[in-house]
Simulated assay, not measured.
Amino acid sequence: MTLKQAQAVAQELGDIALTDAKLQAEIQRLNRKSFVPLEQVKILHDWLEGKRQARQSGRVVGESRTGKTMGCDAYTLRHKPKQEPGQPPTVSVAYIQIPQECGAKELFGVILEHLKYQVTKGTVAEIRDRTFRVLKGCGVEMLIVDEADRLKPKTFAEVCDIFDKLEIAVILVGTDRLDAVIKRNEQVYNRFQACHRFGKMSGEDFKRTVDIWEKKVLQLSVASNLSSKTMLKTLGEATLGYPCFVTLGEANL
């Protein structure tokens, strides 16, 4: 299409009216991330807390987009770091996301960065030693490793050492691919046998979430009856049971 043709089309259709200020404000509100506490998140937090107190390791497994990351991150935020004058911070729960093809150096680097310590240069042994000292000094009781299937096979031994030598509960988070990876190594699998599956929503959980989302996120002036049997069926088919809705702004639940 030439410029003249485009100008002709634009002239024929006319100018696009500016969005009403009130409507624009509502669009911006709906575009903000909204969080709804799910029962399955509370169950996850209870499971994680049990592991932290018992210093036991395990894994959290589920499909992508089911809310594993949000749930684990929220649990970490419930354990706020404490800082005493002249003392290193006390971080009872540390949560990290690791990069692709994560080796030992990358793993230790992410841990140090999360705990606000400078990543020093040196051999793997030197960086490992510094990481262990920092984990111990910060009083870390649980280390949550998200996207754990990105760990290189040999790096799983480093994760096992954090659990074995420091008595820190290590939680691996990932998809079913994580299960396939760790089951190849009996020693790794034995340390992370305890598993919490974070699944998609269905039944009453789905209905309750839709009801909360309609009332607290959409905040429509007139009820839309999204939680009616017919609408729930439509929403269930559209979302496939994943705890997020993207029709009117994304609501990360």
Results as ranks from 00 to 15, higher is better:
1 M>D: 02
3 L>D: 10
3 L>R: 12
4 K>Q: 08
4 K>T: 08
9 V>Q: 12
13 L>F: 06
13 L>S: 02
16 I>N: 03
16 I>T: 03
17 A>W: 06
19 T>Y: 03
20 D>R: 07
23 L>P: 02
23 L>N: 06
25 A>P: 00
26 E>Y: 14
30 L>I: 10
34 S>D: 15
35 F>Q: 13
41 V>Y: 01
44 L>E: 05
45 H>S: 11
46 D>A: 15
47 W>C: 09
49 E>R: 09
49 E>W: 10
50 G>P: 10
51 K>H: 13
54 A>W: 07
56 Q>R: 14
56 Q>T: 14
57 S>G: 01
58 G>K: 12
60 V>M: 01
62 G>N: 08
63 E>K: 14
65 R>Q: 12
68 K>E: 01
69 T>Y: 12
76 T>C: 13
79 H>P: 00
82 K>G: 02
83 Q>F: 06
84 E>T: 11
85 P>K: 13
93 V>D: 00
102 C>G: 02
104 A>S: 13
104 A>Y: 13
105 K>A: 13
111 I>E: 00
116 K>Q: 12
116 K>N: 13
118 Q>R: 12
120 T>S: 02
128 R>W: 12
130 R>M: 14
130 R>T: 14
131 T>K: 09
131 T>D: 05
131 T>F: 06
132 F>L: 10
133 R>M: 10
133 R>N: 10
134 V>Y: 01
135 L>G: 00
136 K>W: 09
136 K>E: 07
137 G>N: 05
139 G>V: 10
139 G>K: 09
139 G>P: 02
145 V>A: 01
148 A>L: 14
149 D>E: 11
149 D>P: 01
150 R>E: 15
153 P>M: 09
155 T>Y: 06
155 T>P: 00
156 F>T: 01
159 V>E: 02
165 K>D: 03
165 K>W: 06
168 I>L: 04
170 V>C: 02
172 L>D: 05
173 V>N: 02
173 V>L: 08
174 G>I: 07
177 R>I: 11
178 L>Y: 08
184 R>Y: 05
184 R>E: 14
194 A>F: 08
196 H>R: 11
200 K>C: 10
203 G>A: 04
204 E>G: 11
209 T>D: 06
213 W>C: 00
214 E>V: 02
215 K>C: 00
216 K>I: 04
216 K>L: 06
220 L>C: 09
221 S>H: 05
231 M>H: 12
231 M>Y: 14
233 K>N: 02
234 T>L: 11
234 T>I: 14
234 T>E: 11
235 L>V: 03
237 E>W: 03
237 E>I: 09
242 Y>F: 12
244 C>T: 15
247 T>V: 15
250 E>I: 14
251 A>E: 08
251 A>Q: 09
252 N>F: 15
253 L>S: 13
